[in-house]
Amino acid sequence: MLSWLPEGVSTYARDIDLVFYVIYYITGFVFVLVTVLLVWFLIKYRRQEGRPAVYSHGNTMLELVWTIVPAMVFITLSLVSQSTWARIKAFAPPGDVEVRVVAKQFGWEFHYPGPDGRFDTEDDKMFEGELHVPVNKVVRLYLRSQDVIHSVFIPNVRLKQDAVPGREILAWFEATKPGRYEIPCAELCGPGHSGMKGWLTVLSAEEYRQWVEAQWPAS
């Protein structure tokens, strides 16, 4: 099933996919176990002449086992999830590139601070639907919304974060492979929600330098 996953092209894509695989194998095992037992019991204990049902109200030992074992597995899964989650969402590394993303019905605006590295100054530049970033650099995104809630989703990067009006929310990623990747909106935002998307272009260091020069020539 996991072969359907889009190719991961960020530093944390591998970590997310790893947790995905761990849970997949554990739940897959439980699913097979339960299904096999279910089918086996249904066949073995189907009604047969002369074989009455066992008169039993349960078994405390067994019940303790299937309370404690799942509890331990689930708590372990929370712990496994925790470190990856914290690294991705709670502790963003310092950004090499910073971009303000403004979501609106129905598109993304990508604002670059320009050579002075500060937002809301003369040399800011806005790109409608196009996000250009260098490979192997930390990109920080500051998400805002002008109207309703949208959600930045970059499947290949394994990034998803809602943009909420009235807040600025920080997200980050570090792309590991040059290429062009779609950025759909993942949160229902109105009649134009479907088709609201932009493009992430991951450039090599050299290409990125050229792109920056082309956008801010004089500096």
Binding site: L5, D15, I16, V19, F20, I23, Y24, I26, T27, F74, L77, S78, V80, S81, Q82, T84, W85, I88, K89, P155, R158, L159, K160
Partner: peptide, 12 residues
């Protein structure tokens, strides 16, 4: 549900 309960997997 276990997949979605795991925060990193739920990101995707």
């Amino acid at each position: 549900g276990i997949f979605m309960a795991s925060t990193p997997v739920d990101i995707f």
